[in-house]
Design a protein around this nucleic acid. Sequence first.
DNA 1: ACCCAGGCGACGA
DNA 2: TCGTCGCATGGG
Length: 308
Amino acid sequence: MPLTVTQLENGLLVEGVQDFSLSQILDCGQCFTFSKLDSADPLTETWHGTAGGRYLKIAQRQDGALLFYNTSPALFEQFWKSYFDLDTDYAHIKSILSQDSVLAKATQYAPGIRILRQNAWEALCCFIISQNNNIKRIRGIVERLCQSFGEELEHGFFSFPAPAVLAGCCVEDLAPLRCGFRAKYLIDAAQKIHSGEIDLQAIAVMPLAQARSELMKIYGIGPKVADCALLYGFYRLECCPMDVWMKRVFAILYPNGLPDCAKDYIGIAQQYLFHYARTCPQAFEPKQEVLKPTPQEVLKPTPQEVLA
DNA sequence: ACCCAGGCGACGA
DNA sequence: TCGTCGCATGGG
């Protein structure tokens, strides 16, 4: 279905958007720079935040239509349409993934998830911060990073600091972030990128294995953070970041790996499964579904009783 | 108080 | 090459 774009006095109305939920997209662990506004209107939800050095306030009506506040048609076409991945047919992708029963459940649980096309440097910073951390605290550290070293945009929001800014910092300079041992990792990433030793533009067009090993030259970037940067910062859908949640998913639901139907969209499948595992734990806890005895088993004598 | 969080580097076997 | 441990901080 084609999008219908209408210019209003306060922004841009975009109708015909399918398979899109603001809260699912912005709160599923791929992005840490948007926050939900308290809305007087229960029929809409409104978020605001930053991406690529731009501030955006955006609302979604209950019928699915989107309102991009203070956004020109040109800016929508050039930036936000791509950022929200609106040219990708998620209905098609979900229909393929749903050939597998678990993925069918995970996609139905949060059918409005999309993979954002984020700025590579910003995603890299966020996922350096993410290691051995929780999403709530990641948001706070990212916010302090931008407030402390970025440039003010609008409404108290700040851009990400450029690599050059962090490259000139020492660990003590980053103390206000309260990011712990990750400060030295951020600085090394900034220095290698600012000096040109690591070229994000070049990584964007490298074969995956080479891109991955290039990112892992940064002190503090291992396989998982590299995969997150590649998936979210470079839109490499063939990456499947393996964090503690996805390790649970594989241990419990996919001991033999993902099914064949996921092979072209592993990164997207990963996002549905990650969100499902993290926010719907009762669907995943091994103890309840897997180990709970059936009524027959409760009545059956134990092996010890049989042997007695 | 305790365990855990979108891990990683250092170290020893 | 593989397991194990410490790391900063704070949420639940």
